[in-house]
Amino acid sequence: MAERALSEILEETFARCRDLEVPLADRLQAFANEVRRMGPHFAVAVDNLVHRLMETGAGATAPKVGEPMPSFLLPDERGRLVGLEDLLGEGPVAIAFHRGYWCPYCRININALARAAAEIAPERRHIAAVVPDRQKYTAWLKSDAKVPFPILSDMDNGYAMSLDLAFWVGDELKQSMVSCGWDPAVSQGIENWVLPIPATFIVGTDGIVTARFVDPDYRMRMAIEDMMAALRSAK
C-alpha cells in the first residue's frame, strides 16, 4: 500500500513539475527537489551514483563536436526501422538519449522536446529520441507527450553502449527506484539494470556532431534554447 501511494504521489508531482511555465532546467530541478524532500535516502543514492560516474568521467568519450556520429538503424514506436542517414536526409537532427518511459525526468524532457520539435520542424530541423524500451512503451511515451518525432528502441542499450553512454544502476539505487515504482526491467524486457546517460547530440547533414550535452547526472538535460540554437546553426 505504502509503495503504491508513493508512486501515485510521484506521478502527481511529475505532472505538476511538467506543467510549470518555467525553463526545462527549472522544471527538472523542481522535480528533483520534491524527490529529495520526499525521500532523502533516494537522493543520497542518486548523489552517490552520480558522484561515482563523475569521478570516472562516464560519457566523456562519447562522440565529441567535430567527430562523426556513428550510424544506427533502430525500430521506432511502430516498428519502422529508422537510420541516422534517413533522418539527416531531412536536415540537421538532435539525437536525444532517454532512460525510459518510467523516468519522470525523461517525461518532463520529452514533453519540452515535443513542443520544440513542432516549432522548429518548418525550418527543416528535427529531433529523434533513443530509449532502451520496447515498442509498447515507446508508443505510450509518444502518445503521452504527443511527440511528433520518432522514439527509437535501443534494445539492451546496444547503441548507447557503443558510444560509451551506458551505466549500471547498482544495488543501492535499484532498491530506491523499485520502491518508487520505477522498474526499467519491465520496459526493457531484460533484468540487467543498465541505463543510458541521457545525452543530446546535434548532428549536421554531413553526419558530424556540431554540439553535444553529456552529463552523468540524469537530472540535468540540454537546455531547450541551447538545442534550438545549435540545430539552427547546424547545416
Binding site: R134, Q135, A139, D154, D183, G189, I190
Partner: peptide, 21 residues
C-alpha cells in the same frame, strides 16, 4: 533488436506488470 522491441500483444516477457500501463 526488432524482435526484442516488438509489441506482441501479450504480457511482458519478464512476467511482471508495468507501472504506467
Amino acid at each position: 533488436n526488432m524482435l526484442r522491441a516488438a509489441d506482441w500483444g501479450f504480457e511482458s516477457a519478464t512476467g511482471r506488470k508495468c507501472g504506467g500501463l
